[in-house]
Design a protein around this nucleic acid. Sequence first.
DNA 1: CTGTAATCCTGCGAGC
DNA 2: TGCTCGCAGGATTACA
Length: 305
Amino acid sequence: MPELPEVETVVRDLRPLLVGRTIVGVRQSKQKLRGPWKPAWNAEVTGARVEGLRRRGKWILIDLAGAPRSVLRVHLGMTGQFTVASAAAPEPDHLHVVFALGDGNELRFRDPRRFGSAEFFRDRAALETEMNAELGPEPFGIDAEYFRTAVQGTARNLKALLLDQTIVAGVGNIYADEACFRAKLHPGRAGKSLTPAECDGLRGAVEAVLTRAIEGRGSTIRDYVGGSGLRGGFQTEFAVYGRTDDPCPACRTPIASARYAGRASHFCPSCQPDSPQGHKVRTKKHKESGSPVPRPDVTRRKTAG
DNA sequence: CTGTAATCCTGCGAGC
DNA sequence: TGCTCGCAGGATTACA
């Protein structure tokens, strides 16, 4: 599932293959993406030269030269693949939008599950303003005070907070779990239950996990490939994600799974306790609260009847 | 405010 | 073996 490291890898792979090239034609499938490419955009981008490639959160931005300066925006959804291939190379299935380049190659957007989007925006500055209003900061070098305030100011659990793109942009289900493990924090902990030091630890863990994952060219569970078609390598370094019942890499306790924020979540019940390590949870008499973490729905197991 | 669930969609594995 | 069904989940939206 493409999250920040996968998107960053695609952008880095595609940059040398796209910058300076001219889009000479567009074709598309009849199937609708979540964010569908409109045929009216074909004429807008044909003849445009690619100025640069960027990433913002999980979004890919392709800057096009011209006045006014426009931009292509792509989201890979869950199964999106954005690659450059020879126009002569056989076409895979689920190909939705293809941009022909002047050099005999083409930029292909493939997305079996069609959760992705490919859109054109004529006004680059307006789009940036809009995106900055909807997305939180990039997770590198986040202001400590900002992050503490965002986390401690809510009763929402850490999993929900990390998945919330308006707080931090780019984290998805895999790296949220991995960051919580690295920070030794239970994903079900309420944001406001964290100490300032724990907030700082979580912020650092998010940054560290994403940095390592980028170095590993992202994670491939099933569909993900980089801009040149290569699979990722970070999936072999998962500590908890998808490792239910496997021994914790730190203490050998079996990894647990539960559902938080509607997402499968994985954690070590020993390394990531419900309450701050070394602190007894203080409960006031008049405000009795049993466990500091609400009991999650344990993974549903089908029972007869 | 917070959480949950449905929605979009295809592929795959579990279970019968 | 072949079918159904749950699940995977990013973002959005509706509802409890």
